[in-house]
Amino acid sequence: MATETTGATASTCVVDGSAVGMPQLCFDWWPNQIFWLTVTLVVIFFVLSRIALPRIAAVLAERKGTITNDLAAAEDLKAKAVEAEEAYNKALADARAQAQEIIAEAKAEIQADLDDATAKADAEIAAKLAESEKKIAEIRESAMDSVKEVAKDTAKELVAAMGGKADGRTVTSAVNARMKG
């Protein structure tokens, strides 16, 4: 807006294309500016209040609604997920309890079997032990007898060898006394 032609601008505010004083204070121009400003403001006001602002308000409200709906849907899904998790946890706990039960049962069964078998084995062992003891006693008995016999014979022979006549009864009592001692 700087280089004005030196044409005769019909205003006292412009001389030779340059402003005289402040153009803002040139009151020749005020009516024109005020008129066009009024027109501008009226146009903007009607465009905004009739078209633009209601439209933007509607868009914003719609968006808010969409967001609220989406949030509600998300909330729903979240609740569902929580529910599913609960069900899963319950099933897990159930399964655990069941397994525990089965284990206990099996343990009891095994214990019973084991007890049975132990008892049986104990009884068997006791029987065998008794039998063995009896046999040992028998063997010991017979061994004792044999030892007596051998001792008597040996004593008789010994006495005979020494030149004496061994009295059977004396030898037997002596051997018996020795054996006891």
Binding site: M1, G7, S11, Q24, P31, N32
Partner: peptide, 22 residues
């Protein structure tokens, strides 16, 4: 201050109430 001069867009007439200016 020259940039603030109001002038008619068409012709060199006086700046009236309804003149189309810059």
């Amino acid at each position: 201050m020259d940039q603030f001069i109001v002038k008619p867009l068409f012709g060199d007439g006086p700046v009236g109430l309804f003149t189309i200016t810059n």
